[in-house]
Every structure is written in C-alpha cells, then in structure tokens.
C-alpha cells in the first residue's frame, strides 16, 4: 500500500478574519492568489502532498474561519492537530493581539507536541517594489515583536506574502521538517501521545473485497 511510507500532517490555521489564512493555503496548494477572496465559512479542508528529504508528506489542512461568530469552532480543529499556523496581518496591530491570544490558547488546549509557526502575512503591503525597501509607516507590527512572541511560545516565525508567494512554501517545509525530525527523534516511550499517523489507520473509502484468504493483511 502506498499510504504506508507517507506521513500525514494535520495542520490548522488560526487567526483573525481577513489576515490571509485562506490565501496562504491557496498559494501553497494551487500556487494561486485572489485579490478578493471571500471569507471562509466554518472551515475548509484541503490536502497537499509534497516531498521533504525524500519522504512523502501529506498535509491535511484545516483552514478555519476568522470571523468572530466562528470563534468557538477553533476548538474542533486544533485539538488533535500536529501543526498550527497562527497568522496575523503585519499592517493590523489588532490582528497581532489576536494572534497572541491564539498562541496562548494553543498552549493550554492542544496536543503537547504541536508544532507552531507564527506568521506575519501581507508582507508585500509594506514593501516598495521598485526600491526594495520598506514603505515608511506601513508596517504596524515590528519583526522583533513577532520574533519575541514566537520565542516565548516555542514557535518558529516567518513573515510572508500570499500575494507574491514570499516565504509561503518555506513555512510549510519548515513545519514538515520539524515534525519529521520530532518523529525520528522520539524514543518509543518518551512520546506520550501517539504521533505515528498511519499506524493501523483504516481508510473507510476503501473496503477490501479480496482478502478472504489473505491472513497477512495489514490489519
């Protein structure tokens, strides 16, 4: 079975409305960008396969809705996630405060081993394309603030742009590498909650018809 040498990573995106969560996913999954992306309702589920260090990784991505009215939903998604991207908009200070809140909540509520990345998105809005320098006053959250928050919570930090695709793949690759590393290093009895994903996982859409005589099946 091809699934056996593939690692699934459940990843959830959290962050205030309109910071660009869905846009980051769209960039990663379809290498596309939409100027007027509609707000996410509830949450969206997407998958993306890629190869990291010769290993196939399947990202199972939960893109949650940032609007207030969906706030209670986030619980449903991060509980068993192995990775979380907490996203804010570098031009919106309030979105950074919200990000801080999400970092705190993740720490309290999620799986112990969760890998977190803090993302300051819409980096393109603070860059002057022609000069290659930052536009004066456009940036509302400093790199230092972002870094500090990430450090405090043991997260990695990136500034990204879903529009120009700056750093987007890097974020996902970094997450994948970190998780693979954690898996490889985990001593069998040190890893409190099972991380090995495909262990005895049954695919409900694949009923087996042929294994009547197959005692050596993978079950």
């Amino acid at each position: 079975m091809s699934a056996s040498n593939q690692t699934s990573i459940k990843l959830v995106l959290l962050g205030e409305a309109a910071v660009g969560k869905s846009s980051l996913v769209l960039r990663f999954v379809s290498n596309d960008f939409q100027e007027n992306k509609e707000p996410t309702i509830g949450a969206a589920f997407l998958t993306q396969k890629c190869t990291v260090n010769d290993r196939t990784i399947k990202f199972e991505i939960w893109d949650t809705a940032g609007q207030e009215r969906f706030a209670n939903l986030a619980h449903l998604y991060y509980r068993n996630a192995q990775a979380a991207l907490v996203v804010y908009d570098v031009t919106k200070p309030a979105s950074f405060i919200k990000a801080r809140h999400w970092m705190k909540e993740l720490k309290e509520q999620s799986t112990k081993n969760i890998t977190i990345a803090l993302i300051g998105n819409k980096y393109d809005l603070i860059m002057d394309e022609t000069s290659g320098e930052e536009i004066d006053g456009a940036r509302k959250v400093s790199i230092e603030e972002g870094k500090q928050l990430a450090d405090e919570e043991g997260a990695v930090f990136f500034e990204t742009s879903a529009k120009t695709s700056y750093n987007v793949n890097e974020v996902f690759m970094n997450i994948a590498e970190t998780i693979l590393e954690k898996m490889d290093n985990a001593k069998p009895d040190e890893n409190p909650v099972a991380q090995t994903q495909n262990n005895n996982r049954i695919d409900l859409t694949a009923p087996s018809q042929n294994n009547i005589n197959d005692n050596g099946c993978a079950c």
């Binding site: 205030e16 309109a18 509609e38 707000p39 207030e68 706030a71 919106k92 200070p93 405060i97 809140h101």
Partner: peptide, 29 residues
Amino acid sequence: RPSSALSSRRPSIIPQLEGIEKPNTPNLP
C-alpha cells in the same frame, strides 16, 4: 450559495483593542 450575503467582502474593521485579550467568546448578533 453562492449568495451575495455570504460572499461579499466585509470592510476591514480593526477590532477595538479593549477586551480583545479575553477568551474568544463570540457574541450572537
């Protein structure tokens, strides 16, 4: 769907800073 009610982009509102550190409790409309 797609209905205009759901898909229209809201204006970007900067949430008030006060109270935002409180747990995420949405208020019903």
